Simulated scan of single mutants.
Amino acid sequence: MTGTGQGTVRAPGRTVTGWSGDADYFAFPEHSEYRPELVVDVLRGRRAGVVFRGMVAREVCAELAARFWDSPHRERRSTEAPSYHLGAYHYHKTTEHYLDESARVAAALDQVLDLPGDPLTAFYGGLAEQLAREGVEVRPARHHGRTASRGLLRSWHGDGRYALDPHEDRSQCTEPGQADFEIQRVTGHEVCALNICLENGDGGRLLVWNIQPDDACKRRMGLHHTGSPYPTRTLDGIECRWIDVRPGDVYVFNGSHVHAVEPNTDPGSRRTSLAGIFGFIDDATVVSWT
Rank of each mutant, 00 (worst) to 15 (best):
T2N: 12
G7D: 00
R10I: 02
A11H: 06
A11V: 07
G13E: 14
R14W: 12
V16P: 03
D22C: 03
D24Y: 05
F26N: 02
F26S: 01
V39W: 02
R46I: 02
V50N: 00
V51E: 01
V56M: 12
E59F: 07
V60G: 03
V60M: 06
L64N: 01
A66V: 04
W69N: 09
D70H: 15
R74V: 10
P82Q: 12
Y84N: 11
G87K: 14
G87Q: 10
A88P: 08
S102N: 11
A103P: 05
L109R: 07
D110F: 03
D114G: 11
P119T: 01
A122Q: 13
F123T: 01
L127N: 07
G135N: 13
E137A: 15
A148Q: 07
D159C: 13
L164R: 09
L164G: 01
D169M: 13
C173K: 11
R185E: 01
C192K: 01
C192S: 09
A193L: 15
I196W: 05
E199M: 14
Q212A: 12
Q212W: 13
L223C: 05
H224L: 04
P229F: 04
T234W: 04
L235Y: 10
V250Y: 01
F253K: 00
N254F: 08
V258A: 00
V258T: 06
A260S: 07
N264M: 10
D266W: 15
D266V: 11
D266A: 15
R271F: 07
V286D: 00
W289E: 03
